[in-house]
Design a protein around this nucleic acid. Sequence first.
DNA 1: AGGGGGATCAACT
DNA 2: GTTGATCCCCCTA
Length: 223
Amino acid sequence: MGRNIGHYGTMAANHPRLLKPSFFARPTLTVARELLGQLLVHESKRGIIVGKIVETEGYLADDPACHAFKGPTPRCAVMFGPPGYSYVYFTYGMYHCFNVITEQKGVAGAVLVRAVEPVEGVKTIMKNFKAWPKNMNTSDPQRLASGPGKLCVAYGFDRSHNALPVSKGSPIRILEGPTVPPRDRVIATRIGITQNANAPYRFYIKAHPSVSKTGPAPARQFP
DNA sequence: AGGGGGATCAACT
DNA sequence: GTTGATCCCCCTA
């Protein structure tokens, strides 16, 4: 924990192991599962931020918990667009949530990135927390982005980051990260929703300190 | 034009 | 387990 795993910020500029739009043009739950361990990069004005994705949730077109369930609205329109774009929305009066669009163009779907382990740019993350109006717990560097709201504070994401490509040439990119051993990848029910709450659409790295919380349902391993 | 609800977080009982 | 902070979104009328 807290080990230096390399200069991902420099690599992020033009490293070949960058997830391409084709990665996201697949079933939402497949993408949610395979995003575990990958590296979310934000090349922001304050500095570059890199974090290892440790927790995701899928949101599907036929899923009552999904913003796109009842069809396109101005807010969720990007969910019906091409895969590999960001979907950032505002919630609870002060927080944002960051998603990546999945499925083929015309089919709604997204993966909510709920938590990352900070890998690079902790100083920049701390600047973002200092600029945040509400008091947040920043004592544990492993838990600076241990939830979807905190993640957006840490990365400096807001609605200006909605509908941006998550790919080469964009300030937001996802790099291939270290492979997560299958026994450490678990599936469970989602958090903080009431609609379709029993759907096992949440994925996280077992016992990882940066995961938001264990959740109500017993998590099981998936192949 | 009005109002209920929300993919959150931290503090409190 | 419950509650306050805080405001945009979307449905209803």
